[in-house]
């Protein structure tokens, strides 16, 4: 590395700025962690009043307003469904987009436009259509539809990037040796993109798990977790709210950790098998 030159002043200024940015991102999160670990007489602000797991426990207890546990299972299930659908559809579309075909531009812009349309319109529109057709608004029907309009464009763009860097020589070799389309995909293509697919899956799940606006008008009588928490912000004035934040954030961190571990494992295996 070219570290011989002394670092200019601008490096230190920018490093300081970057440090502040990271602090800005994480500071509030840690404040919430701390405040959720207060004693039973805890308040919404500092200083901390005692230390206990009272409020963490309170989340799982009977709530006067809202039901965290049910909403959590709903969001988890929905997130997993969205994840699987997003991965399957975007990998398929990614495969299709390795070649230009008549109409590919149209499909591309249709997909991207889903990111540009303000989320509230998607929610409103799906609500109206489901209402007119006579399908109940539920987290597993209309909200699922809304989530897919949000996760698929991101997944699609990432798949385009992955297949853009993809070396087709391996598949060609497999085909020349007489492998069928299916065999080629599962034996050659999929192992090569597997670690990226895990990343897309993680993104699909978290985008769905945290999605608020596109779900807000169409989740039916029951709430997903973000909607439940939104409802609680107006009613709950105890650190239960923070405890809930701590738990969902730790859950997100665990998920990211597991995904990064799997990605690392898969890409190590891939690079080993390439050398071998």
């Amino acid at each position: 590395m070219a570290e011989k030159k002394k670092k200019p002043l601008s490096y230190y200024l920018l490093a300081g700025f970057f440090g502040l940015f990271v602090l800005f991102l994480y500071g509030p999160m840690f404040a919430v962690f701390l405040l959720s670990l207060q004693g039973p007489e805890g308040q919404l602000t500092f200083p901390m009043r005692g230390f206990s797991f009272y409020w963490i426990g309170a989340v799982f207890g009977q709530q006067r307003v809202g039901n965290f546990v049910e909403a959590f299972w709903r969001s988890l299930t929905l997130g997993l469904i969205v994840m699987v659908v997003t991965v399957v559809f975007s990998v398929m579309a990614g495969l299709a987009f390795r070649r230009r075909f008549a109409g590919s531009n149209l499909i591309f812009y249709l997909t991207i436009s889903s990111l540009i349309v303000p989320s509230i319109l998607v929610s409103l529109g799906i609500g109206i259509v489901f209402g007119l057709v006579g399908i109940d608004n539920q987290w597993y029907s209309s909200a699922l539809a809304g989530h897919l309009t949000w996760t698929l464009p991101f997944a699609f763009l990432i798949m385009l990037g992955i297949f853009g860097r993809f070396n087709p020589a391996y598949e060609e070799a497999a085909r020349d040796l007489g492998a069928s389309e299916m065999t080629t995909f599962w034996q050659i293509v999929f192992p090569m993109i597997a670690s990226s697919v895990v990343g897309v899956g993680l993104l699909g799940f978290t985008l769905s798990y945290d999605e608020f606006t596109r779900t807000s008008l169409i989740s039916g009588e029951t709430n997903t977790l973000p909607l439940e928490i939104f409802g609680m912000t107006t009613n709950v004035t105890s650190p239960t709210l923070y405890a809930l934040g701590t738990i969902t954030t730790i859950f997100s961190f665990l998920l990211i950790g597991v995904a990064l571990f799997v990605i690392q494992y898969l890409s190590n295996r891939q690079s080993k098998s390439k050398q071998g």
Partner: peptide, 10 residues
């Protein structure tokens, strides 16, 4: 990748 609503509350 963590909850938007929680990040507001924080």
């Amino acid at each position: 990748l963590t909850s938007n609503i929680i990040r507001m509350i924080s």
